[in-house]
Amino acid sequence: MATIRAHGIASQLPSGFEAKIFVRDVPVGVAHAVAQFATFPLPDDVGDFGSGAVSLMGPVDVYATLFEYGPESLGTVLFARQGRPSPLSPGDFSPTVLRRGVPGQSGTQWFFTEAGRPFSFYAVLGSHLQRALLVPRVNTLLASLTLSPPAPQTPSDRVAWN
């Protein structure tokens, strides 16, 4: 069982999953960690929430994104939930939740705070009809995640004012 770890996010990946954990290079502002998980070959150029990947899913595939927001989101109503959602049930998934409406698929999205960091967890099932089979795979993935508190800023990381 492979373990993936970067930017304060770790997962002992369930069998058949591959993953990426990265921080995008952005010209303006600060980007935060994004983790992507898939039970199918994950292309290198995928949008944060799976554009470019979900169209490649088969009916028994699962895709998920764990997206970190900035510390300014802490304490807001949207992120009031403490801890990740688990376990999810088939009723939590709906075709209307999809960010990209691929026919036959369904999704779920949750906002929460864990380890002092605001996150969104977004998951897509390859086939809504197969949700009873696929949701346990999402739950196994959720249970495999370890989220660490944000790393303390070092003096060199801080903006220096003249």
């Binding site: 492979a2 970067a6 058949g16 999953f17 591959e18 993953a19 990265f22």
Partner: peptide, 17 residues
């Protein structure tokens, strides 16, 4: 599973297709 040269993480499952 490991790190990319830029310090991100990548895990690859050769048997999922």
């Amino acid at each position: 599973a490991g790190l990319t040269p830029s310090g991100d993480a990548r895990a690859f499952a050769p048997t999922n297709s």
